[in-house]
Nucleic acid binder design. Structure first.
Lengths: 351, 351
DNA sequence: CCAAGCCGGGCAAGGGCTTTCCCGATGATC
DNA sequence: GATCATCGGGAAAGCCCTTGCCCGGCTTGG
């Protein structure tokens, strides 16, 4: 039964339902009924024969043929910025937990923060006939891209697909949002309370709406306390450890008298901490540091990191729940609360 | 054209190739040729008409029908212990990089270290007709399970599928292994050099072959130096931070005079470090600590963690490369080197 | 000016599975 | 014992797409 004509993928082809039926001496219809436990009863003897044929041939139904014949969608597509980022690792954990509980298979696609790739994946998932698409990760400040993505998602929804997005809300479908602005505000208020006036901000990539949201909250709180955040006190950096260290170095080198450094995620905060240690700057005695997200590492660095906790696993779980639940008449937006976690890295401003 | 009969997934059905052809006033054959840029030429005018029909209907080909008609496999299935574990996050990054470079889509499945689920996923991926299956994560000490999995993988390979495994080698297909035993040995030698004789080991789950391998290397090195590792010096724990802390506490409470704690992964080492800090034990002055894997956190804790570096990203990249490359006559096993990374947490034994 | 070739397009046959519809053979009923 | 209902099984259509094959019309060469 060799089929390959010298193809890289040579070898015997998979057993088909017809093979099973032939071996069991029944029709494909009967074999099918036995295999999916159809409502229609099958005589015990035939059932036996089919089952042993399945075992002998190691038959596995061709999922594509099944889907074609019975368009029952059970797969969910997830497009995420980067699963190996701890933030998304947590979110993904929540997504998976719910999906698995409901017997759904998840296809995870990494866009690596490339908007074009995000678009491609949505297209591809549509072709895969997935039951739902979940987009996890901040939106982009790019009106053209946003419009194109919205258009694609709308087309998908129009054909019965479900859409849920995490951390952005500028699209059709349900949205689950961490309270980024509130988090920024909490941090700002805490800084004021501790007497900080000269504050440096290590922001992530400028194009991400998450960054804008966090910064807006922070700015607003500081403004309420009479402190304005100059543009040169804000450095945009890569969202990782090294980016944080670089931005911290720049801030220290260009702005005098800083008493606090706020990083808009924990990875960058950890980088800043490392740079400060390397330069012999004591935290928080000389300079305070704060982060964002409360990722596991925050509790293990020295000094432990004051940060804003976002319910990451919950974010994923809620999004998947919405995506798999009944469709709403119109888009829902759920906001999950942020919470300040006080640890050692943020202390009173030195006088 | 509504099809749904009140289904949860109501709405209009997806546009099909036939719809496109009808709208463009051509046959489905022609539409298909335009869409996949077949070698057969199509008149410019018709091509135009088809293309605009595609755009208007937002047509996306049904991937399942395509796969059925042209059995060209381009998807790779990955079954991983837990993507949200930083270890696998790194490995997955390597896997994805190579897959993406070659235009392959990746389906990621989390087994959460449940052997049964691992089996199920392999079965399902087989049904999905994936081009290759990559298993990432330690094997289990369970002969029955191993046999069943081997059987399934063999069946898959027999039908032309490719298999690559990471961190285990007891199966068909190519294997990429970190040098776990060498890593254990390196750690053992370093401990001896620093004068440690009373050593506690925080091992991970007993059922994982990775743990056995690491432990074997460590034991061998110590034995060469005349130090035997009693069973009560070894504690099996969950592979995470809390497991590490608990095991460290047990060891300290039950064994006297320990001068070093070796954790068989970094998460557990971090947990141990936290426990020691909480108990006011100075590291490494009173007790030394070492980890395994060199995950990012190792450089950020205080004291920084001495550990064994494994090339995690490389592990994933090699496995995917093997899985997508030409099949070998028989299983290949590649071992990637381990390397000791000396940092602060491991010092000379107190006298 | 006719025959031979091309070229561009359509027809139709699958690919593997599910499911409706139908039919023959039972068992039950009067 | 004849009629009917019922039950178990098979034939075949259809899901959506690709592609080998064929055919009509044009161009070209003799």
């Amino acid at each position: 039964m060799a089929r390959g004509t010298g193809q890289a993928l040579g070898g015997d082809s998979l057993a088909t339902l017809a093979d099973v039926a032939r071996r069991a001496g029944v029709s494909p219809a009967t074999a099918s009924r036995v295999i999916n436990g159809s409502s229609k009863p099958v005589a015990d003897e035939l059932r036996e024969r089919v089952l042993s044929a399945v075992a002998e041939l190691r038959y596995v139904p061709n999922a594509h043929a099944q889907l074609l014949a019975r368009p029952q969608r059970s797969v969910v597509g997830v497009v995420v910025h980067d699963v190996s980022d701890p933030y998304f690792a947590e979110v993904t954990r929540g997504l998976q937990r719910v999906a698995t509980d409901r017997g759904r298979l998840v296809i995870i696609c990494n866009s690596y923060r490339d908007p074009e790739r995000e678009l491609e994946y949505v297209e591809m998932l549509r072709g895969q006939q997935v039951a739902a698409i979940v987009l996890a990760g901040s939106g982009y400040h790019d009106a053209d891209f946003t419009a194109r993505l919205t258009e694609k998602l709308a087309a998908y929804e129009a054909t019965g697909g479900r859409v849920a997005v995490i951390g952005r809300h500028e699209h059709p479908g349900d949205a689950v949002m961490p309270a980024n602005d509130v988090g920024g505000r909490l941090l700002g208020e805490e800084l004021l309370r501790l007497g900080h006036r000269q504050i440096g901000v290590i922001a992530g990539p400028r194009v991400l709406t998450t960054i804008t949201d966090r910064l807006r909250g922070l700015r607003a709180a500081l403004a309420d306390g009479g402190v304005t955040l100059d543009d040169d006190h804000v450095r945009y950096a890569d969202f990782d450890r090294d980016g944080g260290a670089r931005a911290a170095a720049e801030l220290l080198d260009t702005v005098d008298g800083l008493t606090a450094l706020v990083a808009l995620n924990d990875s960058m905060a950890v980088g800043a901490l490392a740079l400060l240690r390397q330069r012999g700057v004591r935290v928080p005695d000389q300079v305070s540091v704060a982060g964002f997200d409360d990722m596991p590492v925050a509790a293990d660095v020295t000094p432990t990191l004051t940060t804003v906790r976002l319910p990451l696993v919950e974010l994923g779980a809620r999004a998947m729940t919405l995506a798999l639940g009944p469709a709403a008449d119109r888009s829902r937006v759920e906001v999950l609360p942020a919470e300040l976690v006080r640890r050692e890295s943020l202390g009173p401003a030195p006088r």
